[in-house]
Nucleic acid binder design. Sequence first.
RNA 1: GGCGCCGUAGCCAAGUGGCCUAAGGCAGUGGAUUGCAAAUCCACCAUCCCCGGUUCGAAUCCGGGCGGCGCCUCCA
Length: 504
Amino acid sequence: MEIRFYNTLSHSVELFHPIDANEVRMYSCGPTVYDYAHIGNFRSFLFADLIRRFLEVSGYRVHHVMNITDVGHMTEDAVADGGGEDKMQVAMRKLKEGKKSGKAQEGAIENPDDPYQIAAYFTKAFLADAKRLGMKVAFEHPQNVLHATAYIDEMLAMIRDLIERGHAYAAQGVVYYSVESFPEYGKLSGNTLDKVQAGSGGRVSEEELATKRHPADFMLWKADPRHIMKWDSPYGQGYPGWHIECSVMARKALGDVIDIHTGGEDLIFPHHECEIAQTCGATGNDRFANFWMHARFLMVEGEKMSKSKGNFFTARDILGGKATGRAVHPAVLRFELIKSHYRANMNFTVKGLADSASAVRKLIEFRQSLDEKTGGEAATVDASHPVLKTFLEALSDDLNVSGALGVVFPWIAGDHPDPHESLAVFQEINCVLSVAPIEPFEGDAISLEGEGEELPVNDLCRQMDDARARKDWSAADTIRKTLQDAGYEVRNSPNGTVATRQLA
RNA sequence: GGCGCCGUAGCCAAGUGGCCUAAGGCAGUGGAUUGCAAAUCCACCAUCCCCGGUUCGAAUCCGGGCGGCGCCUCCA
């Protein structure tokens, strides 16, 4: 099966072949941990997860690495030489003022003046969210989820190499990458040097221009003893630039040339452009990642998500019901965020969430019916099975999820004479979708039961059965109303009434 | 101003030159079923932003409009 992906580097869909025949090396730009990750972040992370899962089902071993940016970068970092306020400092202040996207748990952070504690707290929150949403790499922390602060030495080593190779220079306590030393600079984004220069009008301060050889030169290290997080270096005590960590960690974990590098579209420039310049400058290769893949931005109800518009949602906001007024099952949020094509802006809406809930319910119930019929024993199938084949072929066309789902639903609705075989097929499909259940899952990811709720759900169902047996319709209707108002879907059947929690 | 993505039913969305008299999901409508519902099953529900061109043939290619969005500056 031929796999095709859109490559930002070439602006076209290309045939995908990993460097090694069987293993794919893939790096994804991960979160900064100054706050809770929002649904836009997760759209991008789940896009990477989807690539990984698809490649795995297609027969590849995937070594997927993601970074955690826990270095306190400056708010006006890249343009200049680190102006603005330290992000970690902002995080600390906001935490104290209770202005975070969500409340930190009481007592979770002993000392809000310690940036490492802030970072540790939000890292933990991120990993918890990521696991709930079925992001495989989150289950591989810490071996495949790397912390920037653990690679300062390697960053300094790469900076040293870049200076030695003539790609970087120190000026007034700042080490800059010299973009003119790298002719390929601008290839990824189309922001070639002449254009960067032309477009920079007014934004680059005179002070900065005086120290930089070219206005687009970007920071690798800044000596600043006042910075909260700081490390010793030959260039003075200070902190690294915000692009260098990815170059370093990707190289360290995956090698000099990798297969796939993912991120949100906003990272194309300057972040990924700079990563390429750094890595290639340090390795001497003309390539860093063979495929650069970027997810487009997520909109909320047709508008760009922003705190000021009040349409800003963290993953835990959604799961907790902030948008819908009712708790949302993680599989529903996952499905909603992966169901549309990654290269189109996705519009996140409450209605879309409800649609996804119906779809996910269908998948979960189908899975449950197969489990019941087979006792969980699946037959053996491989990718040549007609349903799987069509499913994977859709995905192999630049991750055409909609096309793939267009295979799954009609198949589900059809006849299943051999439930063992169907279960095997479904399991494979679910290795990619990971919604029925979320895999690998923790706890009650698949459960639709209302255990531990304030309502005695099972008792009410039995009471309803009794009332129906007595033909006491008004009593039965009252019970149904009670359950529905509490967020349950109620189904009567000859085998007894069943109430399941609404998914969203 | 530069670079790029996109425009298919009420909504999401596949299809990229002839099996398209256009998948699939959600919603909706009619029917079966039901005490009534829900779930389920059956049926129905679009000529593809506009204009021009290429072609025997276009949603699909080309040109021009119009509209939406992104990046170029912290951002997934």
